[in-house]
Design a protein around this nucleic acid. Structure first.
Length: 891
RNA sequence: GCGGGCGUGCCGGAGUGGCCAAACGGGACAGACUCAAGAUCUGUUGGCUUAGUGCCUACGCAGGUUCGAAACCUGUCGCCCGCACCA
């Protein structure tokens, strides 16, 4: 039989149009402006922020919906908890895609960006997120550009911005600089020719000046460990020794973490890309070296680098080892980084794997200077470098020292002779902000033939992009605009030209979160009081892919602004949450993979709240999760159930004890779960509560309202609609988050309900097993065994100790036959002596609890029930009965 | 190579020392309702079973700690993610 999967969807009259509900409330929220954030509140502030998106898409897919919902649920939760919440949205609207579109489709990047923004905003609004839409900002806004340039100048004045030559991706064929994305795989995206590294003047922000603070302050912030570790590695602090070797009577320093191996140096290697390599090279060897440099200039993919064999050429020079005045040959090599350390290394083949490979290839001697404590090393027979610790040999006066100690001893020795010193190296490099592109913030600099590099005066800001440029120009389109290029020098008034580099997008995103605090300020980038009120961001939400880019730049920027006196804090984001990636068909959901499910599709079918709920329910927000078309049906069913329950069931204005207890327990758990981003667990608890209430004839108003309040961060529209339907006039979105009272959580009541449920299930399964649907009589046999006396015994023992292990041992010694039961029950008492439900009851109390159930059970099963004490029972199985659950017999 | 994480039932995914054969959802199966289907409701869904508050097997694999382990430790295999010739 073929099932029509859509049959139900099409003609099921009970299908509720959650879409109309969403539209209705989005309109009302906007009209009442309830999500507007104000500084003058008496309430404690809370700043929730999602990383502002690049406005590219013509749709949002479920991956986006998931990300935005994580933040929105949190913002709503905090708002309801009584915080003064700032939750803004903006757009990272500068960048390459807009420019590429301009090139391909002839659309101006500004139009492209404006259109995309309009679209994405529309989609975001349809999500029902509680953004303060009055605070929208975007990076190509002339106001934003102005302050972006303003900060550039401030940093320049402080010496934190500078210009120097640096290698960039260069395509000889197109005569153009390429962004990294355009040079993927070492080939030009346009002409497919090989790309080379070329030195050009570039602008930098001096992030290295903050390396230590960036590292240290990681301790202060509550971020995922993974991100912190990535930043630590990126900053890459290492302690070592700088040692001066002499080449041609000139001092050439190198950096090493292993000065203890200095007697093992048999050659030196200078990076093939070292700026002074040719200067150092012997005339005779120049052609060879030059050819080698060209070979090394090709941009390579990480895979190629991995597979790359260590290679080099002798440059005809010798270096003098400062420790023993030995002469060793100097090579240019492809495995030494030009921009780390000094761009040159001392090579110790016996104790460094790279040096070892190089030495073997070029038949350079290997000299063992660290001997292994386990075996004697033999330079001739070694198949790989020995990089562990050991004791020094062949090392003059240091022979016999442990390598660990020798690091200091040798460094101190070199310090005395002035040939070396302790030093710290960082891997992090200064942040190159220059882009040879059109669609970015122009760098506010003028080049004057008379005065040199001149800063654009503050009063002339912003320097805006010219509209008419040739986007198909091979190089930076800005160079095609005379109107932009030609200016008068602000200093001498002579003819000068503008800097054509623009800033990379990460500059924009390094302070946008500050501008949200005061996004309309015309006189200043922001008002200090406002920023100091809202900042730092209390909860930042975004992808882990920004770990060492945006997240480190923004930290640097804030520290620099602190030093410049703009802000009073030194970390922008107190807490960070990384959302997981959404997969479909085994791959990350993305347009390029073609495996997307769009917001539209799902909203049309189920309403946006269903999508929100489902995305938060299926997996913890920080885990990768797989989209599943089928499972969302279940979520929809649940929401329909809630809708029916609230609109159709009897809501009563009285207090119902059991419901009150359940409700307070749910509040407690859900609140904790949301706080810690365990949204999936929170939703399970909410479902539990809903299902429980749904099983009752009537629902207390308090319980119904609580359910809606708990639900509202996740399904705000439906919650709002139902809130209104049960007679509330205000918005649930700004209603008070329910408080719980520990005293209202009545474990005994819960236990009573549980008992009822257990018995009910037992009766049903007995019905199935025996085939007796309607027994004449159901008999409960109350236990009257060792258990009650065991409890007394236990209480006695517990006065002596609360250690579960000891208690079990003690009790088992007295009663070996019940060892297993003892082990099972003891720990529960130890953990929670007051709250163990049925077990602590006496036989009489237990009978009473049972009595309480019977009325309901008799009604439900339409049968007589009877309670019999074990002694009076003629049934054998009664012997097994335990307190907390009587044996059940049909008669 | 270095760093981070993960491995649970038919599936997604909870659970990090004791009411765990394992939440919640999906799927499957059975029953109720219905002329029927859908929707809804109820139950079952590791094996054995004398049906029990029972036994056995199970949370990648192998050991260990503990009265007790899916959870803690050690080793091992497999997968994912980041960084990567950093001297």
């Amino acid at each position: 039989m073929v099932k029509d999967e859509n049959a139900g969807k099409q003609d099921a009259p009970e299908r509720i149009n959650f879409n109309a509900v969403a539209v209705k409330w989005q309109k009302k929220w906007a009209e009442a402006a309830i999500f507007k954030a104000k500084e003058d509140s008496k309430k404690k502030k809370y700043y929730v922020l999602e990383m502002y998106p690049y406005p590219s898409a013509s749709y949002l897919h479920m991956g986006h919906v998931r990300n935005y919902t994580i933040g929105d649920a949190y913002a709503r939760f905090k708002r309801m908890q009584g915080f003064n919440v700032l939750y803004p949205m903006g757009y990272d609207s500068f960048g390459l895609p807009a420019e590429t579109a301009a090139k391909k489709e002839g659309i101006h990047p500004r139009k492209y960006a404006d259109d995309a923004m309009k679209k994405i905003m529309e989609y975001q609004k349809a999500l029902g997120n509680s953004y303060d839409w009055d605070r929208v900002l975007y990076s190509h806004d002339p106001d934003y550009i102005k302050w972006n340039q303003y900060f550039f100048i401030k940093l320049l004045e402080k010496g934190l911005a500078y210009r120097k030559k640096a290698p960039v991706n260069w395509c000889e064929c197109c005569q153009s600089v390429l962004a990294n994305e355009e040079a993927e795989g070492g080939k030009c995206w346009r002409c497919d020719k090989e790309v080379v590294k070329k030195d050009l003047s570039q602008w930098f922000y001096k992030i290295t000046a903050y390396a230590d603070r960036l590292l240290e302050d990681l301790k202060k912030i509550d971020w995922p460990e993974k991100i912190k570790v990535m930043q630590e590695n990126w900053i890459g602090k290492s302690y070592g020794t700088e040692i001066d070797f002499e080449i041609d009577d000139e001092k050439w320093s190198i950096f090493t973490t292993r000065p203890d191996t200095i007697y093992g140096v048999t050659f030196m290697v200078i990076s093939a890309l070292h700026p002074r390599l040719l200067e150092l090279t012997d005339a005779k060897h120049k052609p060879e070296v030059e050819a080698f440099i060209r070979k090394c200039q090709k941009v390579r993919t990480p895979e190629e680098i991995e597979a790359l064999e260590k290679e080099g050429v002798f440059i005809g020079k010798y270096a003098i080892n400062p420790i023993n005045n030995e002469e060793v040959p100097v090579y240019a090599g492809n495995f030494v980084l030009a921009d780390y350390g000094c761009g040159m290394v001392m090579a110790v083949p016996a104790h460094d794997q790279r040096d070892f490979e190089f030495a073997k290839k070029y038949k350079i001697p290997v000299r063992v200077v660290i001997n292994s404590p386990m075996f004697d090393l033999n330079a001739e027979k070694m198949s790989r470098a020995y990089t562990s610790e050991g004791s020094l040999i062949n090392s003059g006066e240091f022979n016999g020292s442990a390598s660990y100690d020798a690091i200091n001893e040798i460094t101190q020795h070199l310090e005395k002779t002035g040939k070396g010193r302790k030093t710290i190296q960082y891997k992090i490099k200064d942040w190159m902000i220059s882009r040879q592109r059109y669609w970015g913030t122009p760098i506010p600099i003028i080049h004057c033939p008379q005065c040199g590099v001149v800063v654009v005066p503050y009063k002339d800001l912003p320097v805006l992009l010219p509209d008419k440029v040739d986007f198909n120009a091979a190089e930076n389109p800005l160079l095609s605009s005379k109107e932009f290029l030609e200016v008068k020098c602000p200093k001498c008034g002579g003819q000068a030209h503008r800097e054509t580099d623009t800033m990379g997008g990460f500059v924009d995103s390094s302070w946008y979160f500050l501008r949200y605090c005061d996004n309309k300020n015309k006189d200043k980038p922001f008002d200090a009081d406002k920023v100091n009120y809202w900042m730092p961001v209390d909860q930042y939400v975004g992808g882990a892919e920004h770990a060492v880019m945006h997240l480190i730049y923004a930290r640097f920027f804030v520290k620099a602004l602190q030093d410049l006196g703009f802000v009073k804090f030194d970390e922008p984001f107190s807490k960070l949450f990384n959302q997981g990636i959404l997969y479909k068909d085994g791959a990350k959901m993305s347009k390029s993979k073609g495996n997307i499910v769009t917001q539209d599709q799902i909203a049309k079918l189920y309403g946006i709240d269903t999508a929100r709920f489902f995305l938060m329910f299926l997996a913890a927000p920080d885990k990768t999760m797989e989209w599943d078309d089928k499972t969302i049906e279940g979520t929809y069913r649940f929401l329909v159930k809630v809708y029916r329950m609230i609109t159709e069931k009897k809501i009563v204005d009285k207090n119902i004890k059991n419901q009150e207890s359940k409700t307070h327990k749910a509040i407690k758990e859900v609140t904790e779960n949301i706080e810690s981003f365990d949204y999936n667990i929170a939703l399970i608890k909410i479902m539990d509560l809903a299902n429980y209430l749904n099983s009752k004839e009537e629902i207390s108003r308090k319980a119904a309202e609580t359910l809606l309040l708990l639900l509202s961060p996740f399904t705000p529209h439906i919650a709002e609609e139902l809130w209104e339907k049960i007679g509330n006039k205000d918005f649930i979105s700004i209603a008070k988050w329910p408080a719980y009272d520990e005293k209202k959580i009545d474990e005994k009541l819960e236990a009573g309900e549980e008992l009822y449920e257990k018995i009910r299930k037992d009766i049903i399964s007995l019905q199935e097993l025996t085939g007796i649907i309607k027994p004449n009589k159901v008999v409960f046999i109350l236990p009257d065994n060792w258990k009650y006396s065991f409890i007394k015994e236990l209480k006695k023992e517990m006065e002596k100790t609360r250690n579960a292990g000891e208690l079990i041992k003690a009790l088992c010694a007295k009663d070996k036959t019940h060892a297993k039961l003892i082990a099972n029950f003891v720990p529960k008492f130890v953990k929670n002596p007051d709250k163990i439900p049925m077990v602590v009851l006496s036989a009489a109390e237990e009978k009473k609890a049972l009595d309480d159930c019977i009325a309901g059970l008799e009604k439900e099963f339409k049968t007589k029930f009877e309670i019999v004490a074990e002694k009076e029972s003629k049934h054998e199985k009664a012997a097994n009965a335990m307190p907390g659950k009587p044996a059940i017999i049909f008669e």
